[in-house]
């Protein structure tokens, strides 16, 4: 059981090649950190893993099956800016429901208060919104998570609270996780293994 990337090639249309022959694997239940300077293609890698971008060559498989092109995505991406990842004209209850009926227990673990469900996105702080984006990504069929600078915009306490909550859930469900970050101390805390994105070129 693993998320396996083999011989991945990608470059933005008209741009230089970012990845020529990248291969690595993320075992289910393990956490892999991805590091690299800004502009080195970390977020692009996250989008490729989640299936938001299509690789030029090579293959990504999820627990043995190719990454599906349609239907539910077993690899869920959590973005750096939650305010850009939710529909501003939906109340938070609808934002969650678009994914699945998120169990009360998950909401409690993530510290999402019931009264927030009736609010609009603009009425929540970034940290509060990000908890919803995480809850939404934790569909029962999710096998892997990609956290792309998920807490880079938050203060230290909010960052710690979010990781405390998510790490418990990830361990309980045996999910695999890719953490993209330029903060070495954070990766030291979270990851079993680290990949420098330059190495994948």
């Amino acid at each position: 059981m693993a998320l396996v990337v083999s011989g991945l090639g990608y470059g933005h249309p008209g741009g230089r090649t970012l990845y020529r022959d990248a291969s690595f694997r993320v075992e289910a239940g393990s956490v892999v950190g991805v590091t690299g300077p800004s502009g080195s293609g970390k977020s692009t890698l996250g989008a490729l893993l989640a299936g938001d971008l299509r690789a030029r060559s090579g293959e990504i498989t999820v627990d043995g099956a190719p990454l599906p092109r349609r239907g539910f995505r077993p690899v869920q991406l959590i973005h750096q800016h939650p305010e850009r990842a939710v529909n501003h004209k939906w109340r938070m209850r609808s934002v969650l429901r678009e994914s699945h009926a998120v169990p009360r227990r998950t909401l409690d673990l993530l510290g999402i208060r019931s009264e927030w469900l009736d609010r609009w996105p603009a009425e929540l702080s970034g940290g509060e919104l990000q908890r919803f984006c995480i809850a939404r990504a934790l569909h029962p069929a999710t096998r892997y998570l990609v956290a792309d600078e998920m807490t880079a915009m938050f203060d230290a306490i909010t960052q710690a609270q979010i990781w405390h909550a998510l790490s418990g859930i990830v361990r309980e469900r045996g999910l695999g996780m890719v953490v993209i970050s330029h903060e070495p101390a954070l990766l030291d805390r979270l990851c079993d293994e680290r990949i420098a994105v330059e190495r994948l070129r």
Binding site: A156, I157, A160, W163, H164, E183, L186, D188, R189, L190
Partner: peptide, 16 residues
């Protein structure tokens, strides 16, 4: 709460 310090969340200690 900083990861390079305790990574605690408002008094709750980190454990993995």
């Amino acid at each position: 709460a900083l990861p390079q310090n305790r990574f605690s969340a408002g008094g709750v200690e980190w454990h993995w």
